[in-house]
Amino acid sequence: MSKPNLLAKDFDFDKTLSEWKVNQGKRELGRTFVFKDFKSAFQFMTLCANFAEKLGHHPDWSNSWNTVSVRLSTHSMGGLTDLDITMAHAMDQFALQILE
């Protein structure tokens, strides 16, 4: 896999990832997903885990019953990269699949 690209300082997170919160100090994206039950949350995490393996980019996350809290950052690059954006978009799509 090629080296990820750091995002431009003026990257428009609000336009690109409106549901995600940006923490510039920690250089990470965060979002909390809430599902109808534990099984749905686990199904979401399984889809994300399989995608993360293919992408070679893994989230920092936690699960408590129906809630999955996610933080994304490319630690090896010391900030947010195109990999984080790709992972965030995929997670948004997986959540939509589960919530439908």
Rank of each mutant, 00 (worst) to 15 (best):
S69C: 05
G30W: 06
R27L: 07
H75S: 02
D92M: 09
K15Y: 12
M77E: 15
K9C: 00
V22L: 12
H57M: 13
F11T: 03
F38D: 06
T86A: 14
C48M: 14
I98F: 01
T32Y: 10
L80W: 02
M91T: 05
H58Y: 07
D82V: 08
L17Y: 11
E28N: 13
N66H: 03
F51W: 13
L17W: 09
P4K: 13
D14K: 14
G78H: 07
T16W: 14
T86Y: 05
F13R: 05
E53R: 04
D60R: 05
L47K: 09
C48Q: 11
L96C: 09
T74C: 10
E19D: 15
T74W: 03
D60T: 07
M45P: 13
S40G: 07
S40Q: 12
E53G: 09
S73C: 05
M1I: 12
L29R: 13
F11P: 04
N5V: 13
P59E: 07
F35R: 07
T86C: 15
F38Q: 00
H58Q: 13
L72R: 05
D60H: 09
H57N: 13
F38V: 01
G79Y: 02
V34A: 08
I98M: 01
L17G: 07
P59N: 11
R71P: 01
F42A: 00
T16E: 15
N5R: 15
F11W: 14
A88T: 04
M91D: 10
A52Q: 11
V22G: 01
P4L: 11
N5I: 02
D92Q: 08
R27C: 07
M87E: 07
T81E: 12
K15L: 12
P59F: 14
H58E: 12
S2R: 14
G25F: 01
A90C: 11
N63R: 07
L99E: 09
N23H: 09
M45T: 06
A88W: 03
T74F: 00
V68L: 03
S64W: 08
K26G: 07
S73L: 01
D14Y: 11
L96R: 14
N5A: 15
P59A: 02
T74Y: 02
L55Q: 15
K36V: 03
L47D: 08
H75L: 06
S76G: 12
A8F: 04
H89R: 15
S76M: 02
I98H: 03
M91L: 13
V70P: 10
D84T: 07
A49F: 07
H57E: 05
M87P: 10
S2P: 15
S76Q: 14
L17S: 13
H75F: 08
S18K: 15
L72I: 08
K26M: 08
G56W: 12
D60C: 03
D14V: 12
P59D: 10
L29F: 14
F42T: 03
K3W: 13
G56D: 11
T81C: 12
S64R: 01
